[in-house]
Design a protein around this nucleic acid. Sequence first.
DNA 1: ATAGTTGTAACCGATATAGTTACAATTCTT
DNA 2: AAGAATTGTAACTATATCGGTTACAACTAT
Lengths: 141, 141
Amino acid sequence: MKISSRFAVAVHALLAIYALGDEYKMTSDFIASSVNVNPVIIRRTLLSLKAAGIVAVKSGSGGAVPLKNAADVSLYDIYTAVDCLDGSLFNFHENPNPECPVGKNIHSVLDSHLDSAQKALEDELKKTSFEDLLKKLDSLT
Amino acid sequence: MKISSRFAVAVHALLAIYALGDEYKMTSDFIASSVNVNPVIIRRTLLSLKAAGIVAVKSGSGGAVPLKNAADVSLYDIYTAVDCLDGSLFNFHENPNPECPVGKNIHSVLDSHLDSAQKALEDELKKTSFEDLLKKLDSLT
DNA sequence: ATAGTTGTAACCGATATAGTTACAATTCTT
DNA sequence: AAGAATTGTAACTATATCGGTTACAACTAT
């Protein structure tokens, strides 16, 4: 099973807010037309980013603005902001048999390695800031 | 969304095959009672491991046996054997708007970073062999 | 022949995702 | 103050996937 597209949508939305926010009012409709999803999806995404203190959204008059320097927001921050995985990235079977030497110890044997793998993923996401992404975007346009 | 428990189930099953295979005939029923899932789940798991050349399964008379040295099988091998993610770990929204400078370039900007993150996860999984896991299991029993 | 086992098909229920419609509450503009 | 635009949110749908289950034909060994 994959990591939800909510993550990619949130990155896209925030990138748009950083890159186009000076030029346009970043309403959910506007962002939705760039991402090409329903505006409600964007509103929900913005709620997550708002809860994480990454953007401010004006209700009523509309428009999202960044609250942090692009250099201070990493892909990991977005990943946690829209988090859909509730702790561990890996699912585990519920009730390994405690009567069996393997079943009894499977967690002790395996958990730390899965945690390390997840941490490696997350550490890699921490390495990329929105400043990096914006620079790359600039170089392409 | 999380990585399917099929992965953890497969690791558990193979660990049992390595650790208990000399002592017991490793039928799907036997393994199922250690993992505590339906035997059909184990049969399907063994089919994946078989397709990856990691175990041999005797149809009819029954029983699974390892085909490789534990040192030569890593968690990554299992991860790919039972693969449920068909390429990328990250889902992506389907049709970013090509009329928008952000939508047009989102893949160019983001893909390589997501690939790196996934690769970091996978490289970490490559570091752990079943020999490591068996040693740890031994030390606990 | 019989018993035990695998491989496989055909389901089921639960959950999560992604999407949609609708609308009250809010804010800005005039 | 009225009206327009926008957000926040509820309620719902459709679809996919997961994990599980029953059932049974094909196979193997005794």
